[in-house]
Design a protein around this nucleic acid. Structure first.
Lengths: 175, 175
DNA sequence: AAATTTACGTCAGCCATATTGACTTATTTC
DNA sequence: GAAATAAGTCAATATGGCTGACGTAAATTT
């Protein structure tokens, strides 16, 4: 990765442009996400897992050594909600926990080989869909799509997300 | 609307391009959608409604006279799941049902003034976010973002979605 | 005219994912 | 030693999905 290159990171304080209501994008975002999640959902069902498991496994796999706190900040769910799903992934051998070497209160999370394999399979499903979409469009589209989605994120969250996607370990998400 | 102009509608049968795994877009889609839904979710909580109510109200408001069957095809949920939220929206005066003039088995759905008002408020929240994102980008971005999201949709669903977004009433979604 | 199909609604029960609030343990920091 | 932090846990609850079965009215087909 490392070429994330998000331009124009501050778009606050600009006068609201006179622009028609982008109903098309509102609705397309719904439909795109509906179908984007459908493929992995179907695959996960074979394992008795759901979308919540996918999200946890994905981010742990992408960011080995992630802490529980970081995961909570990424997913924006409560500790109790995460607990059940994470416990299942650990019990079934998809994720490993080990105490932090500096701070032994921490339980760093790692995907096992089995976890990596499942994560790769799910990522592949979503990657195929994205590649197919980009293949039907001009070459600069990847970059514009990336910028658009990036700017859809809450301004105060963008830094964390950019750092996460740039994905050097260890990943710490600011509190 | 009416200028939807989705180019290159068939992207099947092309050789899979040798493209790196677009992890950035996979993750950005998650974060963008996470924050995109957060604003309306917060507003809906005041009314005791959830995301499911939002979706129903949105599409009924945008497509007056929508049938229950159409809504099921759009949302891809079961009749029983829809029933609960729809019933609440009707009981609390956000949506009206009336029998179809041609086919009296149908119960056509309409947003009431109260429903229109809430839908407009929620749409505004999402529109603001999208406008802010587009404002930080080159002018052709709207079109590219639209095309990207459109091509993320299942190929066999795109026709229905294009028709829906073009939004002439009455809207019939193919079975 | 009868049979079938369609549109819609509903009952009952279940599951997954999320919530709040309270409390515990281990460890680090002040 | 006290306070803060990281993580885990118990209990109760809400929401939004699901399956399966069944009923009713109206339209369509035979």
């Amino acid at each position: 990765m490392a070429d994330v290159n998000f331009s124009q990171d501050s778009d606050e304080g600009q006068p609201a442009p006179a622009m028609a209501i982008p109903i098309d994008l509102i609705e397309l975002l719904f439909f795109a996400y509906r179908d984007f999640t459908a493929d992995p959902d179907a695959a996960l069902a074979e394992f008795g897992f759901g979308r919540a498991h996918h999200r946890v496994l994905h981010f742990v796999n992408r960011n080995p050594g992630l802490r529980v706190t970081d995961l909570l900040a990424i997913l924006k769910i409560t500790k109790q909600s995460l607990a059940r799903v994470l416990k299942q992934l650990v019990e079934e051998g998809y994720i490993l926990q080990e105490p932090g070497p500096q701070d032994r209160r921490e339980r760093l999370l790692f995907a096992t080989a089995k976890g990596e394999e499942l994560a790769a399979r799910l990522t592949d499903l979503q990657a195929r869909r994205i590649r197919r979409a980009l293949a039907a469009m001009p070459p600069e589209s990847h970059d514009i799509a990336r910028q658009f989605l990036y700017h859809m994120i809450d301004p105060d969250q963008r830094g964390d997300v950019a750092r996460l996607i740039d994905s050097q370990i260890p990943t710490r998400v600011s509190p």
